[in-house]
Design a protein around this nucleic acid. Structure first.
Lengths: 222, 222
DNA sequence: GCATTTTTTTGAGTATGCATTAATAAATCC
DNA sequence: GGATTTATTAATGCATACTCAAAAAAATGC
């Protein structure tokens, strides 16, 4: 409906991203430019442009003569990424708390928390993941720093496959929503320092759980 | 000596970056792809590739039919960027402190601090800026997170022009080195929390000074 | 003289072809 | 037979040309 007037480059970016996230283009696999061009039924030019863009986002790597490599994510990468997310999201939480938003402005956040609770009730992991993602995205948006938004989006993209994989092996995130509520309350009260530290602790814990999970399950390159 | 075997795309990236930093390609100015291609004596293809890359780094923006726009940096942008730098560098400081580096491993840091002192003695602002940059780069490197390194580099590039401009209007950073030494000492002692908070305070202060300076001097778009 | 339509221009997006050079295979030498 | 050189292949990097749509200019109508 909307990609009617989408350029080939743009289409290439989206289609490649989708295929990377779905695993159709597997982590660690190599692909010639011409192969990708054939796959997407376009010439090499827009494919090259898309690849260049995605390389900048850390999703793949151009290796002259060896093809485009879909970057795998090691446990070390996960740790790096979660540290970045921890720092930047906590800052966003702090800023959001300082901004003095009213209840109305925080409704998306509240909704996401409720949805997570509901999802856990019904053990609907996909719904939980979606709501969790919504919570974090909105939190960062409320932080009001467009660069942080962009970086966080990038980092999340980099771990998307890993998160999908682990979603069904990890323990049910029953406790997690207590953290979310705490962050929410702190923001509502305008308590910047508590918002910051609660979210920081929340994220650090998530990092530990995930990295551990990946190591334990020998998912060394996702 | 080194750009002997450099591809046109790579050359385009470097030359465009240099011209953006020098101001030869002025902030806010628009340039057709063909114009840039002529400027660099190459075809549009490698120029487009370079432009795409630099767009990903936040240095310019492609606006179809209107040309490539060199992105200006507003005081709000500066604030955003410094907040990112503050969070990520403090984390690096914390990690560096936790890593248990010995004196030898911290020598570059120590050297940079000494050089800043010397530069202030002789009021050599360029030397001071260079050493300051060296200090921050090394600190981030010691933090051991490659993504943080990349992001910090990107953010620094985005404010490079602004920093050059303000270097000669800002007050002599005489006090600044006390902060640096404090961070250094904390890292040496392995005191992660102090390292983190000292650097955080240092960066936050730097942000306030710079943003204020830019506003006061009406340098609204650098 | 202003608004609206038509024409022209021009710049970006894409396909294509070719030159270059790295990687692979073949051939030669010891 | 193994190692080294030479020949072949093939993927990339780049230039070029073409298409199409947007913007500017010109022409027309009122």
């Amino acid at each position: 409906m909307s990609d009617k007037a989408l350029s080939s480059s743009q289409r290439a970016i989206h289609e490649l991203r989708d295929r990377i996230f779905s695993g159709e283009l597997a982590a660690g696999s190599d692909h010639l430019e011409s192969e990708l061009a054939d796959l997407l039924s376009m010439s090499r030019t827009p494919v090259r442009e898309a690849v260049l863009t995605l390389e900048g986002q850390g999703l793949l790597e151009m290796r002259p003569r060896k093809g485009v490599r879909i970057l795998p994510v090691s446990p070390e990468d996960m740790a790096e990424i979660y540290d970045v997310l921890t720092e930047l999201e906590s800052h966003a939480a702090e800023q959001a708390a300082s901004a003095g938003y009213d209840v109305e402005a925080l409704s998306i956040l509240a909704r996401a928390i409720d949805d997570m609770d509901a999802a856990i009730e019904t053990s609907d992991l996909d719904a939980w993941a979606e709501a969790d993602d919504r919570f974090h995205r909105e939190l960062v948006r409320l932080g009001g720093n467009s660069r942080i938004e962009a970086i966080v989006t990038m980092m999340n993209d980099q771990v998307r496959r890993a998160r999908t994989m682990t979603l069904f092996i990890r323990p049910l995130p029953v406790k997690s929503n207590k953290d979310h509520r705490q962050v929410y309350q702190a923001i509502r009260k305008g308590d910047a320092e508590t918002a910051r530290q609660s979210h920081r602790a929340h994220r650090q814990h998530a990092k530990d759980v995930l990295v551990d999970l990946i190591k334990k399950n020998r998912l060394h390159f996702l």
